[in-house]
């Protein structure tokens, strides 16, 4: 039987309208908006990377409600890289912004890929 070659599947066609945003927290232990709310739409996070410039705990939020547990960063250079998940890691409530809340006044940065559903 001759060897068969799998046809490549373009996930850009499977996952429609992927959007990207930078993740930034300023040096303030407050809630900060990462992706603005879209009326009637949930923000579903497919992947993200986040690095810290100091010890800090951070959670993602839908508006003012936590939708993840605290992600703990011990020191500068600590990171979390959540790989692509076509079903999503977490999502906001429809019509609410994707926010973060930090425990410390630490600058953090990264990026996020998401879809509106």
């Amino acid at each position: 039987m001759p060897p068969q070659t799998l046809d490549p599947i373009n996930l850009l066609d499977v996952v429609p309208d992927v959007l990207f945003a930078k993740l930034i927290t300023t040096a303030a232990a407050t809630q900060q908006q990462q992706v603005a709310a879209v009326a009637g739409k949930k923000i579903r996070v497919l992947s993200y990377v986040l690095t810290s410039q100091g010890a800090n705990n951070l959670a993602f939020r839908s508006a003012a409600n936590d939708i993840t547990g605290l992600l703990a960063f011990a020191a500068s250079g600590e990171k979390v890289a959540a790989p692509f998940n076509p079903a999503g890691h977490f999502e906001t409530v429809a019509g609410e912004a994707l926010n973060t809340i930090s425990s410390g006044a630490v600058i953090m940065g990264g990026h996020v890929a998401y879809i509106l559903v």
Binding site: L23, I24, V49, T51, S52, A75, S76, E78, G109, G110
Partner: peptide
């Protein structure tokens, strides 16, 4: 900006500080 500030520190993860 396409990303936020990405902090990388060789002392934290020697050899592969940041692999995405």
């Amino acid at each position: 900006d396409a990303t936020g500030d990405i902090g990388i520190d060789a002392a934290r993860n020697r050899g592969l500080p940041l692999h995405v």
